[in-house]
Amino acid sequence: MTATPQGTTDTTLDPERVSLLEALAQQRYFFLHTVEGLTDDQARLTPTASELCLGGLVKHVALTERGWTDFVESGAMAGGEDADLEARANEFRLLPDETLEGVVALYREVAAHTDELVRTCDLGADHALPPAPWFTPGERRSARRVFVHILSELAHHTGHADIIRESIDGQRSMG
């Protein structure tokens, strides 16, 4: 489960795609570094004032990224105003029948699919966002903007993960 930064050596890609892939690889490295060497029980701990745990964060990031890549591919997006509240809460937990290794594997699978889309899709293609209180009515989002959003969300949750990991055993991702 060792995290390693994986940029791209594909010289056939344009600089924008290379930049997106490299930025995603760097953030994924830091994010997955926060869970290296943890047991499932440690990945379920909530040692801060929040209810967040590391295993749940990995699962949430994977499921959210998959939702956005579905949007890029089809314009459809699960969740929104009609989301099942219990399922949404469980997205942030490592449930008893789940393992850290399993959610990391899911995340790696989702990330590989995202990278393939970054390499191949029309970055300017856009879709209307579904109705939700957090989207402006009628707003559209391009694939490019979705990938920047995925990167932003990943960086945001990497910060959460770093604080949680430091609270568990003192390990810090960057220093």
Rank of each mutant, 00 (worst) to 15 (best):
M1A: 04
T2M: 11
T2I: 15
T2C: 05
T2V: 09
T4P: 00
Q6E: 02
G7H: 05
G7Q: 07
G7E: 00
D10K: 08
T11K: 10
T12S: 08
T12E: 02
L13R: 09
E16S: 14
E16A: 13
R17A: 07
L24N: 03
A25P: 01
A25D: 12
A25L: 01
A25G: 15
A25Y: 01
Q26V: 04
Q27R: 05
Y29E: 00
Y29P: 00
F30C: 08
F30Q: 04
L32R: 07
L32A: 04
L32V: 02
H33D: 01
H33C: 06
T34W: 09
T39F: 02
D41K: 08
Q42G: 03
Q42K: 10
L45P: 02
T46F: 07
P47Q: 09
T48P: 08
T48W: 03
A49E: 13
A49T: 09
S50M: 12
S50K: 08
L52E: 08
L52D: 02
L52M: 12
L54S: 04
L57K: 04
V58T: 03
K59V: 02
V61Q: 03
L63W: 02
T64V: 15
T64K: 07
E65Y: 08
E65R: 09
W68P: 06
W68G: 03
D70E: 10
V72C: 07
E73S: 13
S74H: 13
G75S: 05
G75Y: 12
M77F: 10
A78Q: 06
A78V: 04
A78K: 10
G80R: 03
G80F: 05
G80S: 06
G80Q: 10
A83I: 07
A83E: 15
A83S: 12
E86H: 06
A87E: 13
R88M: 09
R88P: 00
R88Y: 15
A89K: 14
A89Y: 02
A89G: 08
N90Y: 00
R93V: 05
L94D: 00
L95P: 04
D97P: 02
E98S: 02
T99F: 12
T99G: 03
L100M: 06
E101V: 14
E101H: 14
G102N: 08
V103G: 04
V103M: 07
V104N: 00
V104C: 01
A105Y: 06
A105S: 13
R108L: 14
E109D: 15
H113K: 09
H113E: 10
L117V: 02
T120P: 01
L123V: 06
G124C: 07
A128R: 13
A128H: 13
P130T: 05
P131F: 09
W134H: 14
F135D: 02
P137G: 10
P137M: 11
P137A: 15
E139W: 03
R140N: 05
S142G: 11
R144H: 11
R144D: 07
V146A: 05
V146I: 12
F147M: 08
V148D: 12
V148G: 11
H149Q: 15
H149C: 10
H149M: 11
H149I: 08
I150A: 06
L151F: 11
L154I: 04
H156N: 15
H156L: 15
H156S: 12
H157P: 11
G159Q: 12
G159F: 05
G159C: 11
H160E: 14
D162V: 06
I164E: 06
I164K: 01
I168A: 01
G170E: 11
G170C: 04
G170W: 06
Q171T: 14
R172F: 06
S173G: 12
G175I: 11
